[in-house]
Design a protein around this nucleic acid. Structure first.
Lengths: 133, 133
DNA sequence: CCGTATCCCGCACGATACTG
DNA sequence: CAGTATCGTGCGGGATACGG
């Protein structure tokens, strides 16, 4: 039996995943998170305690039913989102971030904000790039 | 002429972009950034002052020539990455983050780290989800 | 209201071959 | 070494229709 504390073993387990490796599961997870619909859904969910399906569809302009449902399902399976069905007529479904999901929220928010705040810089850079050639 | 300071007008310009709107340019930018190859390339570039093309290809396992070049070109056009060609035989090409690119780096690093550090949580969540049904 | 099921098109992406 | 060029295809994702 190795002389390692539980904390040490936990730390090692965390570092065992390396997203640079193509076969590593964390590479797939990174790919899942790095998705525009995921960004927008998590951002939207972060703004309220919970959101109804139809609210999300309205807030995230241009998302199709298919992609919204698919994104929510994946996030639910990965433990980032909790789905709560209220039996009624018609049915009411609410989505909320889990603790795990909330731990990712700050980063996701920053990404969206960066895009919005640096759009002008990027526009100028594109202008410069396209002017040459 | 409106009674607004330059700072006020700048603040407004920044908030004029809203990624929730499908037609907003910042939505496209968010989609560009939220890409697995972009994540990995920016992370890799953040680790050194500059990186050669072949170094990036090696570090990011499984990336095709096409996707690596394409990603680097887009990042260069958007002003996040600078490309420097050194005439020699054979040619040497180095890539480095610009100031703008470096401003995005902390967030991108966090995403990759989150994926690696929470992989176990996600695995367990998936197990629980799949067990039901 | 909140989905699932089906069809289908376009293009993202990988594989391969060639060049300065 | 660091790319371009070309081709083939898998699947992302929209449109539509239907179900609980």
């Amino acid at each position: 039996m190795p002389t390692r504390s539980a904390a040490q073993r936990r730390a090692e387990a965390k570092q065992a995943y390396n997203a640079y490796l193509a076969e590593c599961p964390s590479r797939q997870l990174l790919a899942s998170i790095s998705d525009k619909w995921v960004s927008l859904v998590l951002n939207a969910l972060g703004m309220q305690e919970s959101s109804r399906y139809s609210d999300l569809a309205r807030q995230i302009a241009g998302v199709s039913q298919k992609m919204l449902t698919q994104t929510l399902r994946t996030l639910e399976r990965d433990g980032l989102v909790r789905r709560q069905v209220t039996a009624a007529v018609p049915v009411r479904v609410d989505y909320a971030l889990t603790t795990l999901g909330r731990s990712l929220l700050p980063v996701i928010e920053e990404i969206k904000q960066w895009a919005e705040q640096n759009m002008n810089h990027v526009r100028q850079a594109r202008g410069r790039y396209d002017a040459r050639a």
